[in-house]
């Protein structure tokens, strides 16, 4: 039992390391299957036969997709979704109260903080995945920036840098979120040729109902949170 748990951890780490190296899903499936094949033949533990998963993943030198590919496919849409969500949050209270949306430079800088942190993600993605405290620190910074942006928000037009009609921003940001979520849902429903396939059975590594639900919720996370914010704003009107 312990044996299986240790090996499962090793294989999970191997898949993660190969994913971090942008290795194609079919090559990952092939690597995992051939490792399982040898372990079944020798009766060894994965670490004993192949060494540390990270070292083995590096030693394989498998062909990898260029990094800009995932930045274009995943990072930019996520960034745009986050930006739309942040704009929606800034506009929703003013729109519900039928007031002008007041913006100060400090507030703008604080709203931009999470966007900049996410935009720079390719520079430190590996550190975020390998060290949980980096992820916690980033989340804390983003949450703090969000809270502080509310604190420094100007209360009177005199103290504001910009005073704008919130409605176009509210509608625009809401539409952007819905369009991005719809696009992501369509993309995730299509058969993905980067899935991890076991060459011995041609079934995907993990694609159960649970995974599908998680993917669906993730795709619609910003609209769901935006609706919650709208509900809160309406209840405190």
């Amino acid at each position: 039992m312990m044996h299986e748990t240790t090996d499962k951890k090793w294989f999970d780490e191997l898949v993660l390391e190969l994913r971090l190296r942008q290795v194609h899903g079919s090559a990952i499936g092939d690597t995992v299957a051939s490792a399982h094949e040898l372990l079944a033949d020798t009766g060894q533990r994965a670490e004993e036969a192949f060494g540390p998963a990270r070292v083995y993943a590096a030693a394989l030198e498998l062909p990898s997709a260029p990094q800009h590919e995932w930045v274009r496919r995943a990072l930019w849409p996520s960034l745009l979704g986050l930006l739309a969500f942040l704009l929606f949050n800034q506009a929703v209270v003013s729109a519900v109260r039928s007031e002008q949306m007041l913006v100060s430079p400090a507030q703008l800088a604080l709203v931009a903080t999470p966007v900049v942190l996410i935009a720079l993600l390719p520079l430190y993605l590996t550190a975020v995945i390998r060290r949980i405290w980096v992820l916690i620190a980033l989340s804390a910074i983003c949450a703090l920036a969000g809270l502080l942006s509310g604190v420094v928000a100007p209360t009177t037009p005199a103290g504001a840098w910009l005073a704008i009609d919130p409605l176009p921003w509210l509608i625009g940001s809401a539409l952007t979120m819905v369009v991005l979520s719809t696009m992501n849902t369509i993309r995730s429903l299509r058969p993905n040729n980067d899935d991890i396939l076991d060459p011995r059975s041609t079934t995907t590594h993990s694609n159960g109902t649970g995974t599908k639900v998680v993917v669906l919720i993730t795709n619609w996370l910003f609209p769901i949170l935006a609706l919650a914010m709208l509900g809160l704003a309406l209840s405190f009107r």
Binding site: T31, L38, T42, F50, G51, V55, A59, L60, L62
Partner: peptide
């Protein structure tokens, strides 16, 4: 010979 030595070698030969 360990798998961790053999497979990377064969992968390079395949490439």
């Amino acid at each position: 010979v360990k798998g961790g030595t053999l497979y990377p070698l064969l992968t390079r030969y395949e490439a």
